[in-house]
């Protein structure tokens, strides 16, 4: 059902207090080649250190003690961006709205059809991959930016703002030759080939 399970290296986290449901979801997701880890409660999941490996969370909204929707809020507070698929026994509209607002990407009603769940998991994992890749890119960019000297960062900012070497030299009270030198090193360190690259990077880095 999933085009290429090999590609999906991510692990699916199942959070449900009902052992029977947990085992069933675990078996079903594994049968299509997904890796699964089950948790009986939100607390159990949050106690986990390597939460990064999860590409998707399948969450029962009726968890004991704390509501599954409160858990969604917790995730937001903890900056956990893993996409969440909410499963509920009661399909009431207010709850599904709340779930979607709290960041769930899909709201399914029990009994859930395997096809629907798998489609949702696939979409979630894809979204998670994309988000992780984007995050990695920014992290790489930030790492490159960290290697710049104070002077090179100033040059970077001015280049990104669209200033000519001459203008930068005037602004920083340096010679144009020195600016050219700094600019060359900066471009190399940032792995940028053009002015357009620098502008885009500045945008991503929020400079």
């Amino acid at each position: 059902m999933i085009a290429d399970p090999e590609k999906v290296a991510a692990v699916v986290a199942v959070i449900d207090d009902d052992q029977g449901i947990r085992e069933a979801l675990d078996g079903m997701l594994r049968s299509v080649g997904l890796q699964v880890e089950c948790f009986a409660s939100a607390q159990e999941f949050l106690a986990k250190d390597d939460r990064d490996k999860f590409g998707c969370i399948v969450l029962d909204v009726h968890l004991p003690g704390r509501n599954g929707l409160d858990f969604l809020d917790d995730l937001a507070t903890l900056h956990v961006t893993t996409p969440v698929i909410v499963i509920s026994g009661f399909a009431d509209v207010p709850m599904s709205v709340r779930a979607m607002k709290a960041g769930a990407i899909e709201f399914l009603t029990k009994p859930v059809r395997a096809m629907d769940l798998l489609a949702a998991v696939e979409a979630a994992v894809k979204r998670d991959c994309a988000m992780k890749q984007a995050a990695e890119k920014i992290a790489g960019l930030r790492a490159d930016f960290e290697t710049l000297t104070v002077r090179e960062r100033e040059v970077f900012a001015h280049v990104a703002a669209g200033l000519m070497n001459k203008q930068i030299a005037a602004a920083l009270d340096l010679s144009e030759a020195t600016i050219k030198l700094h600019r060359g090193t900066m471009m190399r360190k940032m792995r940028a080939n053009s002015l357009a690259d620098i502008v885009r990077m500045a945008d991503r880095l929020g400079i």
Partner: peptide
């Protein structure tokens, strides 16, 4: 509904 869902999921698996 809980066990019913589990039955369906297990059968699909």
């Amino acid at each position: 509904n809980q066990p019913l869902m589990a039955v369906v999921m297990n059968a699909e698996a």
